[in-house]
């Protein structure tokens, strides 16, 4: 059952996704690898937020991911709340070679839930998996935390590219699936009301634009 017009191929969906986690865990490099297949060994610290869009193909549908790469430094914490608004997905990143960045995950989760919808699709990402020799966080620990918190989990390396695209795709696919189910079930409900919802218009999960409706996310449409 299609809920968008077949001829409207471009930008059927727009999902806002945030990258969060301690400073220097590799958030910007995950994005650089994913969006441009680039890697910078000594990249500049992100100040405030950096914004990037990336088109993705999920089940033949073109999806535009609007990715917000945030500053990890504690000192910018007070101004980050604006960046979370309207997010429907999140990559929560730590560095497998620094235990301390894993310890911060709880704080980041709180931060995320305070400023955005509880149903944000979140993946826990243990980055720098190439640094096997100096690993401080075992894979099992990351997995256990993700299970306890109901998050997806993956270990990635922005340096050698492993799992980078997969991590982003996991989030986007899940958002898409949730959205598809929601739209379908609301279509069932509104069968006798043809004017509702999907009259061939594209479905957009807005980012900042929907600031007025706090619930925003895909899971509350």
């Amino acid at each position: 059952m299609a809920f968008h017009s077949e001829d409207d191929k471009s930008e059927d969906y727009l999902f806002k996704i945030v990258l969060i986690g301690d400073s220097a865990v590799g958030k910007s490099n995950l994005l650089a690898r994913f969006a441009r297949d680039e890697f910078y060994p000594n990249s500049k610290s992100t100040i405030g937020v950096e914004f990037q869009t990336q088109k993705m193909d999920i089940n033949g549908k073109e999806i535009k991911a609007q990715i917000w790469d945030t500053a990890g430094q504690e000192r910018f914490r007070a101004v980050t709340s604006a960046y979370y608004r309207g997010a429907v997905g999140a990559l929560l990143v730590y560095d497998i070679s620094r235990q301390q960045t894993f310890q911060s995950i709880g704080r980041w989760l709180n931060e995320l839930h305070t400023h955005s919808d509880m149903n944000v699709v979140t993946i826990l990402v243990g980055n720098k998996s190439d640094l096997k020799g100096i690993r401080e966080v075992p894979t099992s620990e990351g997995k256990a935390l993700a299970e306890a918190q109901g998050l997806f989990f993956m270990e990635t390396s922005a340096l050698d590219s492993s799992n980078v695209a997969a991590a982003f795709e996991t989030v986007v696919k899940e958002i898409y699936n949730i959205l598809s189910r929601k739209v379908m079930s609301s279509q069932e409900l509104n069968k006798q009301d043809p004017a509702s919802l999907s009259n061939g218009k594209k479905v957009v999960i807005p980012s900042e634009e929907q600031g007025e409706s706090k619930k925003g996310g895909c899971c509350s449409t």
Binding site: I47, G48, V49, A82, E208, E209, G211
Partner: peptide
């Protein structure tokens, strides 16, 4: 809906 914070935070700091 471009919140000036999204760009001016870095410009100013």
């Amino acid at each position: 809906k471009v919140n000036p914070q999204f760009y001016a935070f870095r410009w100013i700091t």
